[in-house]
């Protein structure tokens, strides 16, 4: 039995450093923040110890913050639907292609993921500016005379976030599609189904759990988007993540910032757990 106990100690020792880091740099700070979200904020006096739900009430009742939450949800839902539509063909192509250059194609998907959201937003600013690519092309073709205002609109933010999320969605979907047995599709084709019918009746239903997972991922990433709404939406376009940063850093209103952060986190975690539960129940792993 001594060896069993020694074994258990060695296991604990091997896992301790990583676990303690997560405890000290994530769990404890989150608990402190949860506690502070029930404190109250008195202008001029900073934070006052209390046990009150006034911050959460303010979030639910104040028209401005309801607008922020509503805007964040609207943008996130639009982004998620668009990302799935744009991402599917790319993912299916990546999953099924036999080319030698698959590594390069993957690089094209992964590189945007890694260069940072601010850099990508800069690219979209070149496209969307008053003198930018889109306006110049539309003017050259005679479709418009006066430049369109694209920057600082919901359209610009949605396009920007779609391009950020697309890499994640393509990678998730293509690994799911790769897991689908090709013979199922071939059977449908050999029985006379058209490629579209095969996709609709065989591939899509088999990929549904992956589609759900990719959708949830895209939704979460949009809910938490920071750089893209700040740069493409401008100062008056308020989504949740920039507002959390503003409350904590600029206004020093920790209690309210903490409650905003917690609502954002609960929505995120709730959705992740809900989707996992749904997939587990429906497809019984």
């Amino acid at each position: 039995m001594a060896t069993g106990r020694a074994m258990a100690w060695r296991r604990a020792g091997a896992m301790a450093p990583a676990s303690l880091l997560v405890l000290g740099f994530l769990v404890l700070p989150m608990l402190l923040m949860l506690r502070y979200s029930f404190n109250s904020f008195v202008p001029g006096k900073f934070m006052v110890e209390a046990v009150t739900v006034e911050n959460y009430v303010k979030l639910a009742a104040d028209p401005y913050y309801r607008h922020v939450l509503g805007l964040t949800l609207t943008v996130s839902i639009s982004v998620t639907i668009l990302t799935l539509i744009v991402g599917w063909p790319v993912a299916q192509f990546l999953a099924r292609t036999q080319t030698r250059h698959k590594g390069l194609l993957l690089l094209a998907v992964v590189l945007p993921l890694f260069v940072g959201n601010a850099v990508r937003a800069a690219g979209w600013m070149v496209a969307f500016g008053r003198e930018g690519l889109v306006n110049r092309l539309l003017q050259a073709t005679g479709l418009i005379d006066v430049p369109l205002q694209i920057m600082f609109t919901p359209t610009a933010v949605i396009i920007g976030i779609v391009s950020v999320n697309l890499s994640y969605v393509v990678l998730t979907l293509s690994s799911v599609i790769e897991g689908i047995d090709r013979r199922a599709e071939e059977a449908a084709l050999s029985l006379g189904a058209t490629p579209f019918e095969t996709w609709r009746l065989v591939t899509l239903p088999l990929a549904l759990p992956g589609l759900l997972a990719a959708g949830v991922l895209s939704f979460i990433l949009s809910m938490n988007a920071y750089a893209t709404p700040v740069l493409l939406g401008g100062p008056s376009f308020q989504m949740m993540a920039p507002v959390v940063a503003d409350q904590v850093l600029q206004r020093a209103n920790w209690p309210f910032g903490a409650s905003l952060g917690f609502v954002l986190m609960l929505v995120t975690l709730g959705l992740t757990a809900g989707a996992n539960w749904l997939v587990g129940r429906r497809y019984g792993r």
Partner: peptide
């Protein structure tokens, strides 16, 4: 990976 980065940042700052 699951907790939003902005929330981790805010919590660590306060902590």
């Amino acid at each position: 990976l699951i907790v939003p980065a902005i929330v981790i940042g805010a919590a660590l700052y306060i902590f």
